[in-house]
C-alpha cells in the first residue's frame, strides 16, 4: 500500500516538479533579467529599468527582427506549398506502400540537422554539384555564388524543417473522410469549391500545426545562417547567441527572448482558438 502511495505521488508530482524547475522558473528568471541593467563586472546589476525594451526599438534591431520574421515566414510558406500536395498524394498511395514512404519522411527528421545543413552547403559550394550542373546545362559560364545569400538560408531552413510540415498535414489528410468530398460533389460543388470549402478547412489543423512547427524554430536556428549565410545578424537566433555569448549583454538578450516567448504564446493561442472555431466540441490534448 505504501508503494502505491509513493507511485501515485511520483506519477502526479515528478513531472510538474521538473517542468516547474526547468521550464517555468527559467522563463520567470529571463523575464526578471530583462528588466535589469547590465553590469560590466558581474553580468547583471540589480537596478530596474525599461531600457532593454526601449533599445529593441532601435531601427538596427527592428531590422534584425523584421528580417528574421520575414525569412521564417517565407520558409513556412514555401514548406507549405511543397508539403500540401505531397501530403495529399502520400495519403492516397496504396496502403501497402505507405509505411515505407512515411518512414522515408521521418528519417530526415531523425538525422542530425547540422549534418543536413552541411549537405546543402556542399551542394551549393562554388565547386559543388549545383554549379557543376548549371555549367553543364550551359545556364551559366562560370561558377556563381550560391552560398552566403538569403536564398541559401531560406533553402536550408526549408530543407531542415520540411518534414515538420509534411507530417501534421499528412495526418489531417489521413483522417479526412472521403465521403465528405463525394457529398460535396453530389451537392453540385465543382472541384475548386470542394477544395476551398471542404478539403482546406478539414485539413486546416494540420496546416496550422505544421506552420507553427516550421515558423517558430526557423526564428532561432542560428547555425543555418552561420553555415550557409554571410551576414551575422540575419536571424533572431544569431542575435540572441551574440548577446548571450559574445557581447554578454544578458538583460538586452533576455528582453529579445521574452519578445519571442510572447510571440510563441500569441501564436499558440491563435492555434488553439482556430481549432476550437473549426471544430467545436473537440478535446485538445497536449
Amino acid at each position: 500500500m505504501r508503494n502505491l502511495k509513493l507511485f501515485k505521488l511520483g506519477s502526479i508530482g515528478l513531472l510538474p516538479l521538473w517542468l516547474g524547475l526547468f521550464t517555468l522558473l527559467p522563463t520567470l528568471l529571463v523575464a526578471v533579467v530583462s528588466f535589469l541593467r547590465r553590469d560590466e563586472t558581474g553580468l547583471i546589476a540589480l537596478a530596474p529599468t525599461f531600457d532593454n525594451y526601449a533599445r529593441l526599438l532601435d531601427p538596427i534591431y527592428l531590422k534584425v527582427f523584421g528580417h528574421s520574421l520575414w525569412m521564417a515566414g517565407v520558409a513556412t510558406l514555401l514548406s507549405l506549398a511543397a508539403a500540401y500536395p505531397f501530403a495529399y498524394l502520400l495519403s492516397r498511395v496504396r496502403p501497402a506502400w505507405r509505411p515505407v514512404l512515411l518512414t522515408l519522411v521521418v528519417v530526415p527528421f531523425w538525422t542530425n540537422s547540422l549534418v543536413r545543413i552541411y549537405a546543402i552547403r556542399s551542394l551549393l559550394a562554388a565547386k559543388g554539384a549545383m554549379n557543376d550542373v548549371l555549367l553543364a546545362l550551359g545556364l551559366i559560364h562560370e561558377p556563381v555564388r550560391l552560398l552566403y545569400t538569403d536564398t541559401a538560408v531560406t533553402l536550408g531552413l526549408v530543407y531542415v524543417l520540411l518534414p515538420f510540415m509534411i507530417l501534421p498535414i499528412y495526418s489531417s489528410f489521413e483522417k479526412l473522410d472521403q465521403k465528405l468530398i463525394e457529398a460535396a460533389s453530389d451537392l453540385g460543388a465543382d472541384r475548386l469549391d470542394t477544395f476551398w470549402h471542404v478539403i482546406v478547412p478539414l485539413t486546416a489543423p494540420g496546416i496550422a500545426a505544421g506552420s507553427l512547427l516550421v515558423f517558430l524554430p526557423a526564428l532561432g536556428m542560428f547555425y543555418v545562417t552561420d553555415v550557409l549565410g554571410g551576414a551575422r545578424d540575419l536571424l533572431i537566433g544569431n542575435f540572441l547567441k551574440d548577446q548571450f555569448l559574445d557581447a554578454r549583454d544578458w538583460p538586452f538578450g533576455a528582453a529579445a527572448s521574452l519578445i519571442i516567448i510572447a510571440l510563441l504564446f500569441l501564436l499558440l493561442e491563435l492555434y488553439v482558438l482556430s481549432r476550437r472555431w473549426l471544430n467545436p466540441g473537440e478535446r485538445l490534448d497536449a
Partner: peptide, 22 residues
C-alpha cells in the same frame, strides 16, 4: 497539459537562453 504543449512547441533558442540564465 498546457505547460507540456507550450514546452513542446517552444523554440530551442528560447530554452537554451532560459536554461543558461537558470
Amino acid at each position: 497539459q498546457g505547460l507540456l504543449f507550450v514546452t513542446l512547441m517552444s523554440p530551442d533558442i528560447v530554452m537554451g537562453v532560459s536554461l543558461l540564465v537558470l
